[in-house]
Amino acid sequence: MNFNGKQYYLGVDVGSISTNLAVINEEKEVVESVYIRTEGKPIKSIQRGMAILRDKLGFDLQITGAGATGSARKLTGMIIGADIVKNEITAHALASLEERDDIQTVIEIGGQDSKIIIIRNGVAIDFAMNTVCAAGTGSFLDTQARRLKIPIEDFGEIALESHTPVSIAGRCTVFAESDMIHKQQLGHPLEDILNGLCESMVRNYLNNVAKGKEILPPIMFQGGVAANVGIREAFKKYLEQDVFVPEHYDVMGAIGAAILALEEMEKRPRNSTFYGWNIPDMTFKTSGFECDGCPNICEIVEIRKNGELLARWGSKCGKWDDLSIVHEEKPRQMEKLIVGSD
């Protein structure tokens, strides 16, 4: 590939379930994207994602700016050396506006959160995230699919075969599950139960997250769950409107982060702090300790790149943010006991 004369921007979005990376060019078009599972190891998954991206694009591609977002944005920013670290709501709103500038409502359902962004005249004016409950998010569907031993990819297709969805309590994941088992034991066919799950999830979303929000078309549906056709159809049914799923629905956060990096570099031109394509070969180590300075007992996390201390966070008072303070590991209680015993 020939990259001469063009500028490229990288966006990384690390969420609870998936890690997304996207590279865009200066026209904000997606050049390449990667969607993999985080599997509880954000650092490993970033490195893995970077390696896949590197294999696809090659070492020569120059990154002019990098952005990080998602719930692990702080960590991600440290690991890739991002120029800008922003929250996922802003990133999603920007990416959606790039996709269609007349968009008025964005529905985003991810692994452990779901949000709604209300946009009017090209500016986000309101947003909401699920607050006290994670029912109606991707991980709920994931668990149920695993329990029923069907691959999550086929979930929607099977649900669409049903004509009479079973009503399932959608208020709480635990109740939904026991209700689902109950319906299974009564002999309802699998596709009806799956369809019922899709509908209850949508109902829950509209009654919780989207409560009191004015949902006007065009409506965009994105996030990992947008892959599920059953959910898409359920949204269309309940909103009585067409729901539009963008081409890169699963990596919209990463695209948004890349756009943010582009805007940042245009506003304040400088050399990128991006570490480069050899990130997969670096060793990142995190370690934690409990600070015993006060009864808060904060859990402090330290990030090291190739042995050098990059950052430290987690303290409420900000004492450990100063990297010049060295934390000395006190001998563990256990070792003391062993020493004392002989």
Binding site: S71, K86, N87, E88, I89, T90, V123, A124, I125, D126, F127, M129
Partner: peptide, 15 residues
């Protein structure tokens, strides 16, 4: 909390 506050601030700046 932080995510919501940051998003809210971004929203206000853009507004």
């Amino acid at each position: 909390f932080q995510t919501r506050l940051e998003a809210f601030i971004d929203l206000l700046y853009r507004k």
